[in-house]
C-alpha cells in the first residue's frame, strides 16, 4: 500500500515534469501535415494488409476476363486485343480504386479522431490531402501489378519504359483529382456501404461508356459524342499514346485540364462539407 502510494506520487511527479518541460514547437506547415496524414494512412496498410487485396485481385480478374473472354471476338486475337486493352484496363482499375477513398473517409469520419484533427491548429484540408496521397500510392501499386500481368500475358509497349511510366503518372494525377468526387460522396452519405453503392453506380456507366474496351467507331453517333468527351476516354487515349509511343501533347493537356476542373469543383465542396460536418 505504502509502495503503491509512493509510485503513484512518482508517476504524478513525472507527469508534471513532462507537462512543464516543454517548448512549443513551431506550427507544422501544410505540406508536412499532409505528409504526416499520408504516413498515417500507409501505417494502416501495415496493420491491415488485406486492404491491398481489392487493388490487386480486382484488376487481375478484369484483365484476364476481358482479354480471354472478349479479346478474340473483339479484335480477332487475344494478343492483338491486349495491346489495345491494357492501357485502358489500367485506367479502369485505378478509376475504380478511387471509390475506396470515399469509403475509407466515410468510415474514418464517423469516429472521434476526426473531431480531434478538426480542432487542431493545422492546415484544415491536410487530413484529406494526406489520405489522398496515400491512396495515390495504392493506385500506384495497382498500376504496377496490372502492368506486370500485362507484360506476362504479352503486352509489348512501343513507348518503352518512359512511355509506361509517364502513362501511369498521368493516370495517378487524374485519379487524385477524381478522388475529390468520392470524398464529397463520402461526406454526404451516412454509411460506407451506401458510399460504395452510389459510387459504383456512377462509375460503371462512366468507365463502360468510354473507349477502354472497344473502339467507339461502331457506336451510334449520339453515344459516340458522349464517349468522346468522357474524361475517362480522353485519359485512356493519352495513356495509349504514351505506351504505344504515339503521344499527342494535346491529349495530355486535356487530361490535365479535366483534372484541374475536377479539383476546382469538388475540393471546395469537400472542404465545405468537412468543416460543417456535425
Amino acid at each position: 500500500m505504502e509502495q503503491n502510494t509512493q509510485s503513484k506520487i512518482g508517476q504524478q511527479e513525472q507527469l508534471r515534469k513532462v507537462l512543464l518541460s516543454q517548448e512549443r514547437p513551431p506550427k507544422a506547415g501544410a505540406v508536412s501535415a499532409s505528409l504526416t496524414f499520408g504516413w498515417r494512412a500507409l501505417l494502416k496498410i501495415k496493420y491491415v494488409p488485406e486492404q491491398l487485396l481489392d487493388v490487386t485481385f480486382f484488376p487481375v480478374m478484369f484483365t484476364l476476363m476481358f482479354t480471354y473472354l472478349f479479346g478474340g471476338a473483339l479484335a480477332g486475337s487475344t494478343s492483338k486485343y491486349l495491346q489495345f486493352l491494357l492501357p485502358g484496363i489500367l485506367v479502369q482499375t485505378v478509376v475504380f480504386t478511387t471509390v475506396y477513398t470515399g469509403v475509407a473517409l466515410n468510415t474514418d469520419i464517423s469516429k472521434g479522431i476526426f473531431d480531434r484533427f478538426r480542432s487542431m491548429p493545422i492546415w484544415s484540408p491536410s487530413p484529406l490531402v494526406g489520405a489522398l496521397i496515400a491512396d495515390t500510392f495504392r493506385y500506384g501499386i495497382a498500376s504496377v501489378i496490372v502492368m506486370i500481368l500485362g507484360l506476362i500475358l504479352g503486352f509489348r509497349p512501343n513507348g518503352g519504359l518512359s512511355g509506361v511510366v509517364l502513362g501511369i503518372v498521368l493516370i495517378l494525377i487524374f485519379a487524385f483529382s477524381l478522388s475529390w468526387i468520392f470524398t464529397v460522396i463520402g461526406l454526404i452519405l451516412r454509411t460506407p456501404n451506401s458510399v460504395m453503392g452510389v459510387s459504383m453506380t456512377l462509375l460503371f456507366p462512366v468507365t463502360f461508356a468510354s473507349n477502354i474496351f472497344v473502339d467507339p467507331a461502331t457506336m451510334p453517333s449520339w453515344l459516340r459524342a458522349v464517349v468522346d468527351v468522357n474524361p475517362v476516354s480522353v485519359l485512356t487515349t493519352a495513356v495509349r499514346g504514351f505506351m504505344q509511343g504515339t503521344i499527342d501533347i494535346g491529349e495530355v493537356v486535356w487530361v490535365l485540364v479535366a483534372s484541374a476542373i475536377l479539383i476546382a469543383i469538388f475540393a471546395p465542396i469537400t472542404m465545405y462539407l468537412y468543416r460543417h460536418k456535425r
Binding site: 494502416k44 491491415v48 469516429k111 472521434g112 479522431i113 491548429p121
Partner: peptide, 22 residues
C-alpha cells in the same frame, strides 16, 4: 468516443499528433 486512431499503436498515435503539432 476515442479520438485516437484505434488501428495504430499508442506510440504511433502520439507521434502522429506530435508531428502535426510541428
Amino acid at each position: 468516443f476515442a479520438s485516437i486512431d484505434e488501428n495504430l499503436s499508442g506510440m504511433e498515435n502520439l507521434i502522429l499528433i506530435a508531428r502535426l503539432m510541428g
